[in-house]
Nucleic acid binder design. Sequence first.
RNA 1: GCGGGGGUGUCCGAGUCUGGUCAAAGGAGACAGGCUUAGGACCUGUUGCCGUAGGGCUGCGUGGGUUCAAACCCCACCCCCCGCACCA
Length: 969
Amino acid sequence: MEFLRKIEEKWQKRWEKAKIFEADPDPRKPKYFITVAYPYPNSPQHIGHARTYTLADVHARYMRMRGYNVLLPMAFHYTGTPVLAMSKRLAENDKDLINDFINVYKVPKEKLKEFTDPLAMAKYFHKEIKEGMKRIGYSIDWRREFTTIDPNYSRFIEWQFEKLRQKGYITRGSHPVGWCPKDGNPVGQHDTVGDVEPEIGEFTLIKFKKDTIVFPTATLRPETVFGVTNLWINPQATYVRAKVDNEEWIISQESVEKLRHQNRKVHVLETFQGKKLVGTIVENPATKTKIMVLPADFADPKNATGVVMSVPSHAPYDYVALENIKKEHAKLKEYGLNPEKIGQIQPISLIAVPGYSEIPAADAVKKRKITEQTDPKLEDATKEVYRHEFHNGKMKPNTGKYSGMPVAQAKEKVKQDLIAEGKAATMYELVNKPVKCRCGTECIVKIFQDQWFIDYGKQEWKTLTHKCLDKMEILPEELRAEFEYVVDWLHEKACARKSGMGTRLPWDKEWIIESLSDSTIYMAYYTIARHLKEHKIKPEQLTDQVFDYIFLGKGNINEIAEKANLNVEVLEKMRQEFLYFYPLDSRHSGRDLIHNHLTFMIFNHTAIFPEKLWPRQIVTNGSVMMEGVKMSKSFGNIIPLREGLEKFGADPIRLSVLSTAELLQDAEFNPSIAKSMIDKLEKLYKSAIQTAKIKTTESKQKLAEQFDAIDKWMLSRLQKHIIDATEAMEKMSVRKAIHSILYELDQDTQWYQKRIANRKNKENVKNYVLRRVLEAQVLMLTPVAPHICEEIWKILEKKGFISTSPWPKPDPTEMDIKAEENEEFLINLLEDTENIIKVTKAKPKKIFYYVAAPWKWKIYLKALEKSTQGKIELKELIQEVSKKERTKATAKFALKTIEQIKTIPEKRKQNVLKIGAIDERETIENAKEFLSRRLKAEIIVYNEKDKEIYDPKRKAAIATPLRPAIYIE
RNA sequence: GCGGGGGUGUCCGAGUCUGGUCAAAGGAGACAGGCUUAGGACCUGUUGCCGUAGGGCUGCGUGGGUUCAAACCCCACCCCCCGCACCA
């Protein structure tokens, strides 16, 4: 481990000194521009993050070896509120967070004090993350680094938003959000206790009336208004009579504040206990029927208005509550109600749903044996009834004009109609409540006024985005459908908030552009970032016209430069550098960003840039798991990257996060995987030292003359692995590539070593072959494990950095089907022999092989040839054999051959046909030493037609091509 | 619900696009043997069932179908995981 770390540090220093990852425009070379979503510096990076970044780096390194001028830059995303929130929690002495910072993130205690300043925290983690990226060996051009709160970057974002506004993609409106009434802030998942996402549902408030007094019943199923038998209120809870806008409403006390946050004017006139309402008669606005207000414990004053309509036929809660109350005569009397009259209330069925009775709620309740309205199983029953009714239910004749309509449709229609007629209103409520803000306050829903949006719902914009997507390469391709879906589904996205770090909206400075909106086209900024720094360009020099020129080629360069007080050459240089590196060739990120960032990126590029500068490829990958659980801050199972690097080293971590899973899947990381990678690399290193020791001076040609079949086989296999690995890398199937390069190639090499273990006099050939294999292997491993590969490269006395050496190309002249078929033949023969030995439990002294007679080969090859063309005629096959030779066995063999040939895959057939009959006897003779060593017996080979043949059990006759007969004694 | 991914041997996990060499790569675990003072280190072998000759049977979520041939193609169903936003 120690030695791995030394190697890593050594090469990182040398790369830096040689500046090999600094990419400047070079017209002689094709460019390749890769970016990866910049990190958010509110915590150190962990091994989970390392997967995405390592993949991007591997991609960059691979393309560099393929001869491209690769640019891989990096920046830091300071925008947003999480840093603020964390900083605040630290200031409030949040114990959990302090513990995380000290014990998990390893932040020195004295540093912690500074973190009450959010910017100091961001800077600290920025540095931390950057160090980690260097230590893991990413081939980043650091000259282009920036943060999203740099004034110059802000100017760029302002320019972008002006462009969006000019195109009409910015809109304004109202929008419900999760809200903490104490902090006065919107709350997202990371602001809540337990990191729960506040889910907002829209309730319909149906206005039941007593004279002019409104009982706004909150429901998610407005279509059931036709089956209401009574209303429910909670008798213990406090209700109010209040003026709401222009009406008088009866609502729970808790709902008053909520309605105010939803832009209603609420003036409380009277406060009382719920039981006072019991017995009130109200009118159903849809059916005009008169019904009574009844008490129910399950009616939650904290949910919406606290007034509920009762539909016992289709709502299990209502059904059970009604059944309960019917039996409680004493209680009813207490309220002054007539038990007999209440007992007569019957559920009104209004939805027909297959598989259920008139009263589906009763079915679901009885199935679960529920008797009390407080039974938690009611939740499940409600879901069941809802699911079936929503998808399969039809409205019954008693629903008037909705009769016959599917429930899914009627639900929306009834709601719209009631609202239009003034008989209903809406109210937002958290459907997964209670949701608590980190400050401890229960969250509510607020309608945010005059919110700014980017309108991703615009049809013509979607069309452009689809056009771009169609031309892009999506890796893995399986996720294209998901992108298509997201493009269609996106609509207005709130793009600014009132707190946090970032850029202010240029036309409305109260608002700060939020982080998913200021990170959509910044890849373009990388192309000019180094010039901005180098020439110390100030934000005021970066006028909209300057950006128009650089990115869009608009305007007169001299005028613009003069106006902005910029050097014309510098301006032109930026324009040229942008044009050189753009469009973006590949964008990397975790697949969780498909639903926002990645799709936003496509949208915004199509809005701002001309078609030829649209992004070309997106690569996404899954997460990293630790013992089957996603590695994530919220699960508390992270290994900070820098800690991991100390423990396992850079190359083993790079290898670990990329070798266990393909893009789409989640990768598993644990210390034992990392450990096995360390072992693997150490082995490679040791064998490299062995191989490097002996040098061959003979020419390749001279050596080739001495090749045995097995040498040719090894080199042929090498070509195959080069082809496989290259193909895999092209699709960023790094796992597959690693397997081919490291494991499968090693297996073949081991087999080769075994085969020639006792070969004499050809050490030079062996060394040559092994060296060839090693060189190719190390080259192909370089993108993934660059440090150890540089070291081995040096041991092999190669010139220059391996990081900038060319990726190996397969040599078609070394692909040797014959050698591979020969070897395949031997392996099968060995397997067959071993199988016989196993079954017979014999300890053989002698093993006899009888290879098939030439006439069998003739028939066999003819059959193969015919089978690739269509039907095989028995007659034709027999004619292959001269009349003299024909016997009963001829026909029998031909017949069997026809059957057997069917099961050979097409590709194999082609190969065998290409090389014709192989000399099986010679092949076995050549491998005799190996076979006998392996089988611990003497090997004797005959041709079945040999005159002098030892064949006591008459086995020879069953020999077929590629399958000699075997006799063991 | 909508959209996406997936269900393979004791376990993990390839193979599915391009049907046949698939009882199914590679690991892990287990067992046996070797090396060794010892080993959690390394090496060799075995690891669905049956079989004293290279074979047979069962088998890749479930049920059908196509085909000479299905883990792989088609249809239906069941189950698991992820996303559904204003938040990085």
